[in-house]
Design a binder for these strands. Sequence first.
DNA 1: GAGTGGTCTAGACCACCGA
DNA 2: CGGTGGTCTAGACCACTCC
Lengths: 243, 243
Amino acid sequence: MSVYREIARDLSRRIADGELAIGATLPPEADLAQSYDVARGTIRSALSALARAGVIVSRRGTGWVILSPLQDHGFGQLRSFAQWARSRGMVPGGRVVARAHGPARREEAERLRLERDAEVLRVVRMRSLDGTDVMLERTTYAPWVMDAVEGLDAETPSVTDGMDQAGIFAARTEHTIDAVAATSEDSRLLGVRRSSPLLRVLRVSQGRDGRTIEFADDRYLPGTVAFQMQSTMPSTPLTRAMA
Amino acid sequence: MSVYREIARDLSRRIADGELAIGATLPPEADLAQSYDVARGTIRSALSALARAGVIVSRRGTGWVILSPLQDHGFGQLRSFAQWARSRGMVPGGRVVARAHGPARREEAERLRLERDAEVLRVVRMRSLDGTDVMLERTTYAPWVMDAVEGLDAETPSVTDGMDQAGIFAARTEHTIDAVAATSEDSRLLGVRRSSPLLRVLRVSQGRDGRTIEFADDRYLPGTVAFQMQSTMPSTPLTRAMA
DNA sequence: GAGTGGTCTAGACCACCGA
DNA sequence: CGGTGGTCTAGACCACTCC
């Protein structure tokens, strides 16, 4: 573990413990550097990490103000349904409802950045938390990951874990969130009335090499799941604090 | 403008122009430092800013991979309804539907971190884009900002701008997003059928000094508005889990 | 082994804030 | 004015990836 992360964690703990109160100001960077016996740049790396997490903000000329204790993983850290569920102490489940190959439709081709008519894999999964169905996931996979997906157990609780093992990681995911009325298929599978409200998340993931991995349409039952996130407004230094 | 920001902007432009292609690797940091004639730390500040924006990711031992051109403001930069609307070329509007004082209810007191029964101000506003009503906003303001809010024009398109002028800025905002069915009041004001789906965003904002400013329940008509955001997964320096 | 990013040091100067 | 964070330099060593 790097030094600046340990310092960030320590400061975070001291805030959570109440030793450093919300609304109070942290000691000056120079003092922190001295008390942790590191260079000021290392302190700034730690502070930047906390600022990015929304724990503190800085004011030039004044100091670092404590805003909140460290949140548990919000949407920004969202990696997969299963990991998110586990981080909240729930047991994720999943089963494949349908699976089929076919040529990419226009929207799929655009979002996956593929040629029109390229062969893609479509999978519909029902996802559950603690045994209760909460989300219907319709995913379209790019050709280069089809094999890895088809090798997965139909009931695997975590598709992402399985793909990790195949060396496929999402480095970046774009989310678009809105609300939709349940279609008749949605209502049948999720067990709600037609037209009842669902929270929809459209996802597009890219791997570390920039290639698109998948495009998904996730529909959540309301009341079971809510997304949390936070934005820290201006004044957070855009930079890491490398000195 | 600082040097690293100019470099970040320049790299961003070169990516948007296609000079640096998606999926390609940036020149090594040492080379960039030499070509921009700055220290490596300055280059890293620029790269970190781009990484935070989801434009690039790094792989130790390999290099910086280009993932996407710079997005225009997503949810992470979301500051206010009006600013968000304007950034998309739309004209924001707003009118006060109801306004009343009263003692804080339990949920309000908790979220605003106030004493129970503290006097708060509640305002219901209808927000519009290009003249069309799209969102119903129910806000509860903390006592210390009530005066500033009451001084605002009932039809001001941007509440945030008005509060800025009063010296009240949100340094951090927490968002919780889900889908709900329209209540009868919602349906009457928004002109939709009862129980039709609405996208709900619960917001809590804090000022630079850590005090809570407001707590809001925003309900959007679906189809008019969607939230976009992106998460950059692991390996972005300084993002990593600390707890 | 060579090349990459990740971390850290020890300085320096500047812009901004409040007394 | 003195103290704060914001930026920048010029080094150094390490961990990782790929050949």
